Simulated assay, not measured.
Amino acid sequence: MKRIVVLGGSFGGLTAAFEVKRLLGKEAEVTVISNDDRFVFLPSLPWLIMGWRRPEDITLRVSDILRPKDIQFLHEAALQVDAETSKVRTKTKEIAYDYLVISTGPFLSFDEVPGLGPDNGYTDCTFDLDHAIKTGQTWRKIIETPGPIVIGSAQMVSCFGPSYELAFEMDAELRRMKMRHKVPILYLTSEPYLGHMGVGGLGNSKRFFEDEFAERDIKSIVSQAIEEVTPGEIRLKDGTKIPFRLAMIAPPFKGVPSVAPLGNPRGFIPVDKRYRHTKNKNIFAIGVAMAIAPPEQTPVPTGVPKTGYMTVKMAKTAAAAISADVRGTTPPAESEIDVMCLMDMGNTAAFMKAAPVLPPRQESVTKKGIWAKWLKVGFEKYFLWKMKNGMSNLP
């Protein structure tokens, strides 16, 4: 029996665990290691901030959904991976593996910008459940005492979608409450232009975001790096000072410390097209943990996004490669990764697609319509049902 260890209990980790177990059955002993026993449907965190979802609406208990699939769960943080001896060390255990799948997500590197972050700084964040809950509290204070909002992304960010969503959602909600004129909204980003998204844009995304922001009177400052944040003020490296009452700024991304030694200088892990580590052939890395070189150099550094959609596809590819290794068969043919996103805009939504994710592309599009909003609502319910029942074989 092969021992497969999966680090991470979110989109990639759970999909990889379910899929390896489905493909190999009793030939595999699968263990998931995570310091969080909650699966959170991360795309719904902006809705939670707005008060449109409760935490219990978008979370599942990881241990409960793994147990029926005969997958072991260790509720601890991985402290170290020893690639030479093929072992993972936690606070209480040392777990040997034949194959390791790393799906640890990002390390939110707030410390790279003084004053950034909700724990030791002055800004809010929406990349995990606890931070989103706190951001929701700040948002409700804005409704009580209006003032300027700054939303966006610092340098070295590789996930821009939630910031765009919140800018649109806050605009729509403030208009519904007839108080938009009391709350200036500024979108601040490291992207070289609106709609760049770290991938050189998606179809007509530059014009799309410029037009939508102009229609909603959302001001923007692009291609900027943040020097520091002080109480109520963001200071840019060019000397500009921006006041705020709420600042929701995505922080720089790095690899999680326990796996960072396996990666590049920022801790992201180099892999081949089946997500196998370029040096350690029994280690796979998927999602934010793996390294993708940006398609172009930008004046302010940005990273390439790895969305939940992309991560699930990576997980299935890695699981198929592990299964082929174990059984001595040929793995499925390599394929370019593509991306599809549904971006909520408050009173409507947008569908965005890039195939492949990096240019030059076969297809690239951004389209708006209320149908995209209902697709997003439906997908939330579908994906939570799929994870709850361990249905990794479904799209």
Rank of each mutant, 00 (worst) to 15 (best):
D82T: 03
D36Y: 12
P46Y: 00
L60S: 06
T92E: 15
V88E: 00
F73P: 09
A78W: 03
D37I: 00
K26T: 14
W47A: 15
R89G: 00
F18I: 03
V20H: 09
R22G: 07
P55L: 04
I33Q: 09
V62D: 04
F41N: 03
E94H: 04
T59H: 05
Q72K: 15
Q72E: 14
F73R: 07
V81Q: 01
P55S: 08
Q80F: 06
L14R: 04
P55D: 00
P46V: 01
I95F: 05
A28I: 11
E27R: 14
Y97G: 07
G25A: 01
A16M: 03
E56G: 14
R53G: 10
E29F: 03
V20F: 05
R61P: 04
D64T: 13
A96Y: 11
R54E: 15
A28T: 11
P55K: 11
A78M: 09
F18A: 03
W47T: 15
H75F: 10
V30T: 05
S44N: 09
R89T: 10
E94F: 08
T31F: 08
D82W: 06
S63R: 14
D70C: 14
A83V: 05
L79F: 02
P46M: 02
P43W: 01
T15P: 01
T31R: 09
V32Y: 02
L60F: 01
R54K: 15
E84C: 11
N35F: 12
E19G: 03
E84T: 14
L48Q: 08
R54H: 14
Q80N: 13
V32G: 03
P68K: 12
V40H: 06
V88A: 02
V81M: 02
A77M: 05
K21N: 09
L66Y: 10
V30D: 01
G51F: 13
E29N: 12
A16P: 04
L14D: 05
S86C: 11
R38T: 09
V81A: 03
E27G: 14
V88S: 01
D57I: 00
W52M: 13
L48T: 05
L14E: 05
A83P: 11
T15D: 00
T59G: 09
R67G: 10
L48M: 12
F41C: 02
A78F: 05
F39N: 13
L66G: 12
L48R: 12
K69R: 15
L45D: 08
I33W: 03
I71N: 03
E19M: 10
F39L: 13
K21D: 06
P68Q: 11
K26R: 15
F18C: 01
D98E: 07
I102A: 00
G51Q: 13
V20Q: 06
I58M: 10
G51L: 12
V62S: 06
K69M: 14
K26F: 11
T59C: 09
I65E: 06
E94G: 07
K69Q: 15
D57T: 02
W52R: 15
W47C: 12
S34Q: 05
D37R: 07
S34P: 05
V40A: 04
H75K: 13
E56F: 07
R67D: 12
E27C: 10
V40F: 02
R54A: 13
T85K: 11
S44W: 10
Y97L: 08
L14Y: 01
K21V: 08
E29M: 05
D98V: 08
I71T: 07
G12V: 03
E94P: 08
P46I: 02
